[in-house]
Nucleic acid binder design. Structure first.
Lengths: 188, 188
DNA sequence: ATTTTTAAGTGACAAATGTCCTTTCACCCC
DNA sequence: GGGGTGAAAGGACATTTGTCACTTAAAAAT
């Protein structure tokens, strides 16, 4: 069975064994316990992460201390604080493990290096970035157009495996509604 | 006084007169009357547009016939139906002129050609795309975190010139609230 | 200038959603 | 295996926002 990262990259472009081994050699394994922080607000973010095992979320905290989930990540997803990572500025979003996690970390410099050395890797990044943009667009659309109910149903439909894995509180804050509203919705 | 398009590109990277003239030669002027459509739902989108004069909006229509504004564009903004333009698929979003407009159209092929011929133009596109992503992120954040009031105040603060230029109905649909709610808000 | 159309303001009411509080249940930790 | 901890369900009530109907004002058309 092929390495999860390889499978992910090859959904965009094929690699030889040598190429993949070389790429993989730039990643560092990271293990984290449930509830630990991967990134805290204000941190400099020197890596982006590919998730091998576990479940994380990135979130913003407003002045009143309320948390808003910006993104989830499970196996075979990438996660980081994009803006902080790209621009070398302090993170405005925190990232936390919701389960014990195993990650692969790639530094900014190594990412740039791989991009330079492999057209294919650069292309993979570009495709990934574009998919991210389109996903963001869709989510925005749903936020503007849909009621709490529609947003929730869409979420369950789109991520059935997350619905039973992630605390409802966080799903609520991802959808921009209160936890109680979520409760009310699937009573019916 | 320099050409608006040149000014815009040069906010990212400098051009010689010859380079700019060559780039500009790939653009076609387009004039449109108020209320006319630049893109209709279902159209193939072969161009992207730089706005020289006027004011446009892109919007989605839901099953009930309700319109949701996805984006505004005024002088010195770019506008298109990104997904349709990039992937050569039918547009799911329409674009309409809210005033008489003068645009510069650039075809998909010419865009690619300019990107190939000028590293600087390619770079300009990349920076623009990244800024678009960050802007989308900010807007999403505000939609999740902010009340109607906060969203509206943020809009007025961020785009004071649009607030007096664009019908409130469309500002409301951009913010994801009803027109009446907007009315109520700035009574106070 | 007069008519017609379109945008905007307003109030009353309904529906959706948020907030607060209590109770229950499941899981984790000595 | 009991005590503690955190997540979730549920009810009561407050607040926000949407909807509808009507009026006024402004802009466009003739």
């Amino acid at each position: 069975m092929s390495h999860p990262l390889r499978t992910h990259i090859e959904s965009v472009s094929q690699l030889t064994d040598e190429e993949f081994d070389y790429i993989l050699s730039h990643f560092t394994p990271v293990k984290l316990k449930k509830h630990s922080s991967l990134v805290r607000e204000g941190d400099l973010v020197k890596h982006e992460y590919f998730v091998l095992k576990g479940c994380l979320r990135s979130y913003i905290t407003d002045n009143a201390g309320k948390e808003f989930t910006y993104q989830f990540a499970v196996e075979n997803w990438w996660i980081s604080e994009r803006e902080a990572f790209m621009k070398h500025i302090p993170a405005s979003t925190a990232i936390e493990c919701m389960e014990d996690c195993e990650l692969l970390a790639l530094s900014y410099d190594d990412r740039a290096k791989l991009g330079r050395e492999f057209w294919k890797y650069e292309h993979y990044l570009a495709v990934k970035s574009n998919m991210g943009y389109v996903a963001l667009q869709k989510r925005l659309q749903l936020l503007i157009m849909g009621s709490a109910k529609e947003r929730f149903e869409n979420f369950v439909h789109q991520y059935p495996h997350l619905y039973n894995r992630i605390p409802k509180t966080h799903i609520a804050s991802y959808l921009g509604v209160s936890r109680e509203t979520i409760s009310r919705l699937y009573r019916k």
